[in-house]
Design a protein around this nucleic acid. Sequence first.
RNA 1: GGAGGAUUAGUCUAAUUGGUAAGGCAGCGGUCUUGAAAACCGCCGGCAGUGAUGCCUUGGGGGUUCGAGUCCCUCAUCCUCCGCCA
Length: 420
Amino acid sequence: MLDLRFIRENISLIRENIQNKNESANVDAILEIDEKRRQIIQEADKLKNTRNVVSKEIANLKKQGLPAEDKIAEMKIVSDKIKEYDDELRETETKVYDIALKIPNMLGPDVPIGRSADDNQIVRTWGEMPVQQLNKAHMEIATDLNIIDFERGAKVSGGGFAFYRGKGAKLERALINFMLDFHLDNHNYTELLPPFLVNENSMYGTGQLPKMKDDMYHDPEENMYLIPTAEVPLTNYHYEEMLKFEELPIKYCGYSPCFRREAGSYGKEVRGFLRVHQFNKVEMVNFSTPENSWAQLEILLSEAEDIVKALGLHYRVLRLCSGDTSFSSAMTYDIEVWAPGEQKWLEVSSCSNFTDFQARRANIRFKRRSDAKPEFVHTLNGSGLATSRIMVAILEQYLNSDGNVVVPEVLRKYTGFEII
RNA sequence: GGAGGAUUAGUCUAAUUGGUAAGGCAGCGGUCUUGAAAACCGCCGGCAGUGAUGCCUUGGGGGUUCGAGUCCCUCAUCCUCCGCCA
C-alpha cells in the first residue's frame, strides 16, 4: 500500500502510474473520502479529550464523596456522540482502504514505459545457444525416459499436476538441495523452511490479496490459503515487527512448493511443465534499508544468475517494462532460460524491489536508533529458482544425440548419477 | 475435539470496591573523566503535528459503563490434563 499522505499529495502521479502499469484501479473517490476521514478523526478526538478530562473530575469528586450526577449525565451524551463518530470513522476507513489497497506500487526510476512483454529490455545474455542434434520438446523427452508422469498426475489430482518418477524425482530433489546449499554457502543466507498454508493477513501483507484472490487455493473452513510462492511466508516472517538497524539487510532463502490455480489459462499454455498448479521453488527474500534497496536488487539478481550459470544454462536477463511489472513491485528483473525444444525463453526467476509497499501493509519497520522514529523497511525477493522450468531447460539443453540427458556437473553429487 | 490456567511496551514485573498504566533491567543522549567504568540528569510503545500539544495503546475484535488492565462475549497463541492420531 502507498502512504495515504503521498496519495493525497500526488494523485496525478498515481493516475499516471496506474496507466503505465496497465492497472485499472479507480482513485477518483479517495481524496474526498480521506478528507472526510480526517475530519471525523479531528471531531472525535476533541470529544475524547473532553471525556478524558471530565472523567478525571468525576473520579476526584467521587473520592471526596461529592455528587457527580450532572457531569455523568453530560458525559453520557458525549460518549454516545463518540460512538457515532467511531462507527462513521470505521466505515470511512474501510472505504479508504478498499481503494488504497488496490492502488499498485509506484514504479522505480529506471523502469521503461511499455504495454506488454514486447517492451521489456534485454539487459544481457549469457552463454551460447546450444546446438541440438535431436529436436525434442521436454514432454517428449520426459515421456521417453519415463521420469515425469502427467497422465497419472491428472488421474490422481487433475490437469496441471504431475508425478516425478525415478531419476526425474531425484533430479528435482537434487536441484532444490543444490540451490539451497549454493545460496547458504556463497550468498550468506539463513534458511527457512516455511509453512505452506498461511492466513489471510499474510496474503494481504505481501499483496496477493485482494487483487489475486481468484488465483489462490483457499480453504474456507479455516480461512487459509495455499502459498503461491514462499515469498508470502518468508516476508511475513517479520509481520508487525520492529527490526534492528544493525541487522539489515536480513536475507532468508527457503524452499516451498507453490500452488496456483492459474484461472483463465488455456490451451497449449497449460501443456507440459510451462504452467502447472504445483511447482517447486527456492525463494530469496531481503529486508533492506530504503537507501540500500536498489543496490540489494542488483545483488539479488546476481545471486539468482549465479545458479543458472552454475547449471551451465544459456539465459538472458530482462528489465520488465512498466506494463509487465507486477502490482506490488517497483522494478523487476526476469531471468529467462532458453528451451531449444520449445524454441522459446522460459521465465525461471523474477527479482523485484517492492520498496516500502509490502512493508507498509505488513507493518515491518526499523529504527536507526533506539530513540528514532520508526521507518518502513524495503522488501525484495527473487526466485532462486523455480525448478520446474529449470528442469525443462536441462532436459532440452542437455539432451544428447542418443536421446539421453546428461546431468549438469554441479548436480551430480546430489543425484549420484551422470546420465538419465 | 473437551476441561482448566495464562498473555501488560525490547525484556522482567506492579496497579484498593472499575477511577484512567507505576517501576527495574537493557538501550539512547548528556554531565563528569586522558579514556572507560561508576555516579548523576534526561529520553526510552504508536499515530498526527515544525511545535506546544492531542489522540490511541495492557494478545486481536466486540460489549457493559460517565469511566475497563480489572466485568461479559468472541477469536488467536502458550502451558497443564483428557480424548484422537501420523
